[in-house]
């Protein structure tokens, strides 16, 4: 599988992650090489094999629907880039 620059741009957009123009060419090559490695999987027939979601085949543990955490908003927001009145600040989304 060979990826073009335009493919990488599309994937980077899906990941909401900037990839600079200088990075694009080498990233496209690297990703193509990694996909060649990955595609070695196709050598084996997996028809009818169940996908393995958990190494020990454990089920999700459930707990009672009760509040178990205390409110630590101020403590957690102390490390935020920008907050105001208990909210996280980001650029305006709605005009």
């Amino acid at each position: 599988m060979s990826l073009e620059r335009s493919d990488v741009e599309k994937i980077a957009h899906l990941a909401r992650m900037a990839v600079s123009d200088e990075e694009l060419a080498s990233v496209a090559d690297d990703l193509s090489n990694i996909l060649d490695l990955v595609e070695q999987m196709n050598a084996v027939d997996t028809a009818g094999v169940a996908p393995m979601a958990h190494p020990l085949h454990m089920l999700q543990r459930l707990r009672a629907d009760k509040v178990s955490e205390e409110d630590r908003r101020e403590h957690f927001q102390a490390i935020a880039p920008a907050t105001e009145d208990g909210c996280y600040l980001v650029p305006k989304v709605i005009e």
Binding site: A15, R16, A18, V19, S20, V27, L31
Partner: peptide
């Protein structure tokens, strides 16, 4: 904000894996 924060914050190998 998302794109540049992530683009600047992550190094080359992490970016490759996120993209793959």
């Amino acid at each position: 904000l998302y794109k540049r924060s992530r683009g600047e914050g992550f190094g080359a190998e992490v970016k490759r894996r996120i993209l793959i």
